[in-house]
Nucleic acid binder design. Structure first.
Length: 843
RNA sequence: GCGGACGUGGCGGAAUGGUAGACGCCGGGGACUUAAAAUCCCCUGAUCCUCGAUCGUGCGGGUUCGAGUCCCGCCGUCCGCACCA
């Protein structure tokens, strides 16, 4: 094999990248020391699902975390920056069904591939802590934690209507149903009654909600989304007394008890017991209920769905007025799952009730008005949901909405027909999945003893290897021997639970396992106290609810049962934007890959045949749109540092980053430009360049601030500025110091180039070097440019020593020809001077 | 319907209420070269143009000596939630 010696004036990533990656590996440069006395930083990016290959979104995510981790390290922190694999999940089983491979083999091969890809990007990861959730060494501990939660009463098993995905043939959590469809399969979700395992996340509704207030370093958007998801609503639950022939009272829930005198009907859900009972004797009612169930549940269908009702003929009594009776309707807009499955209809102050009452000719009364005087203001345009005082409401008249609400609740409780109640939108988390490739739920079903937890000394309950995927459904259920065990209590023949845990359980505690991996237990409490909470967590906004809410819940649950001390897992959260790319549509209307098109005289044509190509939208990279770029290809072409630099440049990290070929080439040019500049380092140079010294330290200070705030695009701009300034400067000792400093500054972003240049200067590993210190005196300019405005418009600028007194600035401003011309002899009425910034002459 | 974010050159984007457009990409001109690549220098918001001037941050108002930034009202784009009582 012959090797071509690299051109010395060019940086050769093909040779340098693997060389330095090997050095970091051998020296274990990024291994976190649990015993360190340095300040600690736990930097974490959401671990990937091993789908096959790293995609560009991963590269962006991990590059950001890496720059932060490397910078923190240089700044003297003991950094924990681990990586692992969210390795259970449906795609592995799909691959098993489609390709006849074993999910474990498929997953582990993908992990090997993706790990090699991550290594090629030079991430400063502590690989000694690598974990994969599909290994018994991980999920066995998860089973133990699940049993602990069970012992504490936080795991329940109950029969319930569940979301059944008919394509994936499994149950889905509410969070996994999007617009009535499975989040993975896209199939219309059906309702089924099954015995399921649940985690009692609703026990934590209040603290998960209140905890959001302490997460001041989380995006407001994510906190709001979680708040809405938890959905706290305060109101009153009370009963309407029945009139014969109706026998049972109707319990309703309302957040507006102040409007109780405006109630003109009661509506119950189609699934409500009274409706179901009526359907047995009334074919009309049965037909209506059937009609309700046919209605779609997608957003669009709900938007246009008409409010439909069925008059049961029953009547109930108003709690405050024995003269007043209300008709009972079955209505298609009332949900059995929320509140009591029955509502009081107040058409005057609820648009939905208004529509319903208008349609069925029910009474519409105003009971809240801006003032008592406006009690009879007509409700022409629909319901009035505004604030105000109660009217037409007897003893409530004149009270504010708030006071009236309190009064009604007080009376209901005193008189015993209702009570104040908080209702949550959040449901318990159903975690049973009828799948093979997940954590086996460690329980045993015994005909004699019932549901018995697997003894802890028998953990892990390991998945069987010999399974077949030729028929749909759960392979664990079909396996000939796996499920048959002796009951741990009575010893008689029993069967294992064949459901596995939702994969979101796996990702709900992995950040704890990274902090320590003791053999016999899930984690070491002291190590968690040292490292947690994660200082900076980085990942996609798509996990704003699911993963982040579940992880918060697990952390709080483990805290409550006394296993850990931390309550919130992630102190600071950053949600990064997607990598997008132009899409191309060929003459046949099919998507074209970027490599299949080219630019010909300003218009885009196909490479083959030069046929015209239509430009689509700039969208998230996806295989179906063919607008993807493979990270490996770019690494081979340009080297890891170029890819990393591109990921950090231009777009603010929270926004989308449009991929462009021109952009990556610009980055590649800049890598070489830096390399040339680093080659100009001259240890023996003499002479001082004060301006460059100042620029150097200002750049370092600003870039440090930018990186700390995750403003990587701004840090990149500082690097460009300093680079240009050094290039323009004449040789001097200052210039050499500036080159050396620039090298340290780019080290977290372009670690391979930095190591190579650092070594050529005769230094050790730049990975072990310290962040450059700055002279605070140099951060302050001694000369400033002051703007001179006339009536707020810029007319001139003055360059003056910093701290020039106001009077002098004013005099200098008045002495300017341009200012005099702009003034044109007008009399000055007022002068605003902001020292070191501007003078504004108001004429 | 409810909630939120955003709107700045050809493009990605900078800008503690104080010189709008930093930095990068694209484009144009030039230098070097037999030539090209690579590299370097200059220009690059619009209009009128010699200096210079006028306009300019989605639209309309307002607060202020001064607004991309704050307030009110629109328009548009994107995201989340949704018969939630």
């Amino acid at each position: 094999m012959t090797t071509v010696p690299p051109e010395p004036s060019r940086f050769d990533p093909a040779a340098a990248d693997p060389r330095w990656q090997r050095v970091w590996d051998e020296r274990q440069s990024f291994r976190a020391d649990d015993a360190s006395n340095k300040p600690r930083s736990y930097v974490l990016e959401m671990f990937p699902y091993p789908s096959g290959r790293i995609h560009i979104g991963h590269v962006r995510n991990y590059t950001m975390g890496d720059v932060l981790a490397r910078t923190k390290r240089m700044q003297g922190h003991e950094v924990l920056h681990p990586m692992g694999w969210d390795a259970f999940g449906m795609p592995a089983e799909n691959a098993a069904m489609e390709q006849g491979v074993h999910p474990g083999g498929w997953t582990r091969a993908n992990i090997a591939t993706m790990k090699a890809q991550l290594k090629r990007l030079g991430f400063a990861l502590d690989w000694s802590r690598e974990l994969a959730t599909c290994e018994p060494d991980y999920y066995g501990h998860e089973q133990a934690l699940f049993l602990d939660l069970y012992a504490a009463g936080l795991v329940t098993r109950k029969e319930s209507a569940v979301n059944w995905d008919p394509v994936d043939m499994t149950v889905l959590a509410n969070e996994q149903v999007i617009d009535g469809r499975g989040w993975r399969s896209g199939a219309l979700v059906e309702k089924r009654k099954l015995s399921q395992w649940f985690l009692k996340i609703t026990d934590f509704a209040e603290e998960l909600l209140e905890g959001l207030d302490s997460l001041d370093k989380w995006p407001e958007k994510v906190r709001l989304m979680q708040e809405n998801w938890i959905g706290k609503s305060q109101g009153v639950e009370f009963a309407f007394a029945p009139l014969a022939p109706l026998e049972t009272p109707i319990e309703v829930y309302s957040t507006r008890p102040d409007t109780i005198f405006g109630a003109s009907f009661v509506a119950i859900a189609a699934d409500h017991p009274i409706a179901q009972e009526l359907a047995r004797t009334s074919p009309e009612a049965a037909a209506f209920i059937a009609q309700c169930k046919r209605g779609g549940t997608t957003a669009a269908e709900l938007e246009t769905a008409e409010k439909l009702g069925f008059d049961t003929g029953f009547e109930v009594l108003h709690p405050f007025d024995s003269e007043c009776t209300l008709p009972v309707y079955i209505a298609n807009f009332v949900l059995m799952e929320y509140g009591t499955g029955a509502v009081m209809g107040v058409p005057g102050h609820d648009q939905r009730d208004f529509d319903f009452a208008s349609k069925y000719g029910l009474k519409i009364t105003r009971v809240v008005a801006p003032s008592l005087a406006e009690a009879d203001k007509p409700l022409a345009d629909g319901a009035d949901s505004g604030d105000g005082v109660c009217v037409n409401s007897r003893f409530l008249d004149g009270m504010t909405v708030e006071a009236a609400t309190a009064e009604v609740i007080a009376r209901a409780e005193r008189e015993g027909w209702g009570k104040g109640k908080t209702v949550w939108r959040l449901r318990d988390w159903g975690v049973s999945r009828q799948r093979y490739w997940g954590t086996p739920i460690p329980f045993i079903h015994c005909d004699t003893c019932g549901v018995v937890p697997a003894p802890k000394d028998q953990l892990p309950v390991v998945l069987p290897e010999d399974v077949d995927f030729k028929t749909p459904g759960n392979p664990l259920e079909r396996h000939p021997s796996w499920k048959h065990v002796a009951c741990p209590d009575c010893g008689r023949a029993a069967v294992r639970e064949t459901d596995t845990l939702d994969t979101f359980v796996n990702s709900s505690w992995y950040f704890l396992r990274f902090a320590s991996q003791p053999v016999g237990q899930p984690f070491d409490r002291a190590a968690i106290a040292k490292w947690l909470p994660v200082e900076q967590y980085i990942g996609g906004i798509e996990h704003a609810i699911l993963h982040l809410l579940y992880a918060r819940f697990w952390t709080r649950a483990l805290n409550r049962i006394g296993l850990i001390d931390v309550k919130e897992p992630f102190a600071s959260l950053f949600t990064q934007g997607m990598v997008t790319h132009m899409t191309y549509v060929g003459p046949d209307g099919k998507w074209l890959a970027p490599a299949e098109v080219k630019d010909k005289l300003g218009s885009i044509v196909t490479v083959k045949g030069e046929l015209p190509v239509k430009l689509g939208r700039i969208e998230k990279m996806s295989k179906s749109k063919k607008n993807t770029v493979d990270p490996d290809d770019i690494i081979v072409k340009h080297g890891a540092d170029t890819v990393r630099w591109f990921m950090l440049s231009d777009s603010p990290p929270e926004r989308d980053l449009p991929w462009s070929e021109a952009g990556i080439e610009g980055c590649a040019r800049f890598v070489q430009r830096l390399w040339r500049l680093f080659g100009q380092f001259d240890a023996g140079a003499t002479g001082e360049d004060k301006a460059l010294d100042r620029k150097r330290d200002q750049s370092v200070a600003a870039a440090a601030d930018d990186i700390a705030a995750l403003g990587f695009n701004k840090a990149v701009a500082r690097v460009y500025e300093l680079t240009s300034a050094i290039e323009k400067a004449a040789p001097s000792a200052s210039r050499s110091v500036a080159i050396r400093t620039l090298l340290l500054l780019v080290a977290p972003m372009m670690p391979h180039l930095a190591e190579e240049a650092w070594a050529s200067m005769g230094e050790g590993l730049i990975a072990d070097a310290a962040w450059p210190t700055v002279d605070p005196a140099l951060l302050v300019e001694d000369e400033v440019t002051v703007a001179v405005q006339v009536k707020g418009k810029l007319r001139d600028t003055l360059t003056v020593p910093k701290g020039t007194p106001r009077e002098e600035l004013e005099a200098l401003a008045l002495a300017s020809d341009k200012v005099q011309r702009a003034l044109a002899g007008a009399e000055i009425r007022k002068v605003i001077v902001v020292p070191d910034r501007l003078v504004n002459l108001v004429a």
